[in-house]
Each structure stands twice: as C-alpha cells, then as structure tokens.
Simulated scan of single mutants.
Amino acid sequence: MVEGGEIVDQILVLTQEEPVRLDADRLRDLYMRLGDVGAEDVVCRAMEEIAVRLSHTERLYRQDRMVDMRKSARSLVAISEQVGMRALCAVAEDVTGCIDAGDQVALAATLSRLLRVGERSLTAIWDLQDATL
C-alpha cells in the first residue's frame, strides 16, 4: 500500500463478525408444542437443511442461476423462521431483495453475509442445544 509516497508494510485485516439472534420464545414454543424429542427432531432436521441450502444457494450464485437461487434463499427464510433464527431469516430476505432488484454488487456482498450469519446461527443453535442437555 502506498501512502503519501511511502510504502507501508502493515496490512490491516478486518474481521467481520455477525451477531446472531435466536428467538428463544420461538424455540420454547416449539419444545412446548412438540415435546423434547419432537422439537429436537425438528431442530436437527432444520439445521441439516439450512446447511445444505446455504451451500446450494452459494453454488447457484456461482452458476448464475438467479431464479433457482431466489427459491433456495426463500426456503432459508421459511426454515430459519421455524426454528427462531431471526438474523438468518432477515439476511435471506435481503438476498432475495437483491436478486429482485438485479443488484449484482449488493447480491455478492449480501450472499457473503448470508453465509457468515448462517454459519454462526448454526453454531449458536448447536451450542444452545449442548447447554440444555
């Protein structure tokens, strides 16, 4: 990097940490309605499906298949909402908005955010399950 004619040999690495929000009331309601075993089953299947859909959404982006990518992101909205992953739900909605607007620059940035939030959300719900065992 050149600064005022001088070469600066320091690089600043910015880490992007995304806060995740789990809706404890949504999870509590799920456990009350389905019982421990039923709720655990729903949450585990949702976690697996979210991981698959995140990967699929990214692959569709790389293949420039926007219609299919939008469907995949919309499914992430529904699944994440079901298990109380509010941040993931919001970012997946943002991805669909970028696709609808045809904003490729915003889509690239928002997809990156979706992947970060998705990973952190899965970790958070996994940690929550471990804490309740």
Rank of each mutant, 00 (worst) to 15 (best):
Q104F: 09
D68R: 11
Q104S: 12
E81F: 05
R21I: 10
E48F: 04
E93D: 13
L107T: 03
R70S: 13
T110L: 07
G4C: 06
R21W: 03
L107S: 04
Y31R: 12
T123L: 15
V8A: 01
S72P: 03
E40A: 13
V91I: 15
A106G: 07
A124I: 03
S80H: 05
D100A: 14
E40V: 04
D100E: 15
R45P: 00
W126T: 15
S80I: 05
S72L: 00
L114R: 00
G97H: 08
M85W: 01
L30M: 08
A24T: 10
V8W: 06
V117G: 02
G102R: 07
I7H: 07
E49G: 03
G97T: 13
T96Q: 14
E40T: 12
V105W: 02
S72A: 15
R113N: 07
E3R: 11
L22Y: 03
D103A: 09
L14P: 00
R21L: 13
S72H: 01
V2F: 11
T96R: 02
V42E: 06
M69A: 08
V42P: 04
G84L: 07
D103N: 15
V2L: 14
C98W: 02
R86L: 12
T15N: 12
A131C: 11
L111S: 00
A109N: 10
M47R: 15
V13F: 07
R116C: 04
S80D: 03
A90E: 14
I50N: 03
Q129H: 09
R62N: 12
A106Q: 12
S80T: 09
Q10E: 14
I79L: 10
C89N: 13
E81S: 15
M1C: 10
A87F: 03
A106K: 10
R116K: 11
L114D: 02
V2N: 12
L76D: 01
M47E: 11
M85I: 08
V2C: 05
V43R: 01
L60D: 01
G84E: 06
